[in-house]
């Protein structure tokens, strides 16, 4: 394997790692809690921006790089800072938007937040350098690495971060919190009758999901060294939801598989030969393909590849013994109602 294709693989793996972070996070707020957060990528952006401005030094007039903060913090702290910022944003948005969970209302409010935020960021250079965006962000181990092999340097960082986040997600999946979140999603009125504070549960899920998005954003800005407001995140948003849906909503492992598949599609499309005179067709083809993939998944297998895992299972032998249970004859099956 020559170094060029090796580099390509390393880069694809880093992209997978970032998308997987996004997917696992979205699996918590959308997969488990059922919140259709269409502004998810705004959380990613906030994570990127705050991660960046925490790691950057003071504003650099010579380079025309204006921004707030600029505390020259080490990158692990900056990544954490990005996650916290996104989590806080999720909290604010949740307090406003999650009162009525009808998907349409939620989608429009979240988009509204995104749009306002995006416009403010683009038009206020002193925040995050406006349209130009942040650049010159100090990359982890960047000073000592060869830029040509940087993907290999960054890959372990992504692996460790993703690994930690996956462990947390697994812990949540199997916990009382996870059960409660899913119960609220299944029937919020019943959950309320069972003593659950529904709003609090939903907001906490949203905050966690957004924090994951923030980490993904921070990883992005540290990998690339720069970040600016792209016009639209529709493509990325579709990709994220597709990843969660393909893998199976409410399933951490499924979210990882889904991310792998979607990343594969998105990267693989590069290999379609460019048509002379219309070099930008690849981007359009990618968009169309992804849209079709999402629709296909929703049509053929809306529950995804993996079913939602039951958080708790009983180990028959031990527990039955402990209780000295003799199995009762099963209830007669009768017709419903």
């Amino acid at each position: 394997m020559n170094s060029a294709s090796g580099l390509w693989i390393a880069n694809a793996l880093v992209n997978f790692g970032v998308l997987a972070t996004i997917s696992v996070g979205l699996n918590i707020s959308f997969g488990m809690a059922g919140i259709l957060d269409l502004s998810y990528f705004f959380s990613v952006a906030i994570g990127a921006y705050f991660g960046g401005v925490l790691a950057l030094g003071g504003t650099n007039a010579a380079l025309d790089l204006n921004h707030i903060l600029g505390l020259s913090l080490p990158w692990p702290i900056a990544i954490l800072g990005g996650a916290v910022a996104s989590g806080l944003l999720g909290l604010l948005v949740g307090l406003v938007a999650l009162r009525r969970l009808r998907s349409d209302y939620l989608a429009i409010v979240l988009f509204a937040v995104w749009s306002i935020g995006y416009d403010i960021i683009s038009n206020t250079p002193s925040l995050f350098n406006g349209i130009t965006g942040l650049f010159n962000v100090p990359q982890p181990f960047g000073a000592t690495s060869n830029p040509l092999t940087y993907p290999w340097v960054f890959l372990p960082i992504v692996a460790v971060v993703l690994g930690l986040l996956v462990l947390v997600a697994y812990a949540l999946e199997r916990s009382g919190f996870g059960r409660t979140v899913r119960s609220v999603r299944d029937d919020s009125d019943l959950a309320e009758a069972m003593g659950k504070a529904v709003m609090s549960v939903r907001i906490r899920s949203m905050v966690v999901g957004c924090a994951y998005a923030g980490v993904a954003g921070a990883l992005t800005i540290f990998y690339v060294g720069a970040y600016n407001p792209s016009a639209w995140f529709i493509f990325e948003t579709i990709a994220a939801f597709a990843a969660v849906l393909i893998g199976g909503r409410g399933n951490v492992f499924g979210a990882l598989i889904g991310a792998f598949i979607i990343n594969g599609i998105a990267s693989g499309v590069q290999f379609i030969p460019t048509i002379a005179g219309r070099l930008d067709l690849t981007a359009d083809f990618r968009e169309a393909l992804l849209a079709l993939v999402l629709m296909l998944v929703l049509y053929i297998r809306p529950h995804g590849v993996f079913r939602e895992r039951l958080g708790t299972r009983t180990r028959d032998e031990t527990t039955a013994d402990e209780l000295s249970i003799e199995s009762q004859p099963p209830l007669p099956i009768e017709s419903v109602q």
Binding site: I238, F285, A288, L290, A291
Partner: peptide, 14 residues
């Protein structure tokens, strides 16, 4: 909602 979202993206590409 996601289906219409995906359709919007598809149309964008077209």
């Amino acid at each position: 909602l996601l289906v219409t979202f995906a359709t919007a993206l598809l149309l964008s590409a077209i």
